[in-house]
Amino acid sequence: MTRIHDMGGRFGYGAIRPEGEDEPLWHEPWHARAMALTLAAGALGKWNIDMSRHARESLSVRDYANFHYYEKWIAALADLLVETSVLTGDDLKGEGDEGRHPLSYMALKPEKVAEVLAKGSPYIRPSMDDPDYGPGDTVRVRRMPENTHVEGGHTRIPAYAAGARGRVLRLQATHVLPDTSAHGLGDQAEPLYAVAFPASELWAMPEHPGDEVVIDLWQSYLEPA
C-alpha cells in the first residue's frame, strides 16, 4: 500500500473553498520563507526532488494530516538536513557548533538566484529499456501500488489506479525512475507514458460515461492487458 500523501479519490475531505484569482501567494510571511529556505537548501546538492518528496511523505500520518502545507516542507527539510548529515540533532536544538560549515561554499548566492530558477533540472535520461508500448495500446497498472525496490519506499503509482486498465495516449520520453532515485539507487530511467483511464475503470459511481483520468506512469508500473 501507499502512504497518507496518496489522496486521489479518497472520501471525507469536504468542500474545496477556492479563493479568487487575487488570492495572496502566501497567507503568512513564514510561508514564503519556508518555500525559499527549501529551495535555497536544495542548492547544497545533498538530495534530489524524489528524496525531498519522500521526506514529506514520510512524516508521521498525524503530522501529515495536521500540518499546514509549508509546515510539511519545513519539517521535511529539517529531517533531510539531519539524514544527509548536513546538520545534527544538536544543531536543530540550538546546541551545535557555531563555525562555518564545510558545505558553505555551495550556498546559493543572491545574484545566482534568477539563473538557478531559470536553469531547472531536466529529468529525461537515456534508458536501457526500449518502450514496450505505443499510443493506443491497452495496459494494466500493477495491482500493488508499492515500491518494488525498497519496502515502503517512494513510488508515484497512485493507489486509485492499481490494477486499472487504460490506453496509452503518448510516450513522453525516458525519465528518471522516482522509485530508485528517491533512495540513492540511481536514475534507472524508463519509458514514461501518459495513460488514459475511463472514469468507470476507477470509480464505482463515475460522474459521466465520457470522463477520463490521465496518469503519467513509468514502464515498470504497467503490464500488458
Binding site: W30, L37, R100, H101, L103, V113
Partner: peptide
C-alpha cells in the same frame, strides 16, 4: 522556520538575501 533559517545562516549554508531574491 525562523529557527532553521537562523541555524543555516550562521553556518554559512544559506544567505538570507538569496531567500529574499527567491
Amino acid at each position: 522556520v525562523k529557527a532553521l533559517e537562523t541555524i543555516l545562516t550562521r553556518k554559512g549554508l544559506v544567505d538570507p538575501a538569496a531567500l529574499d531574491a527567491i
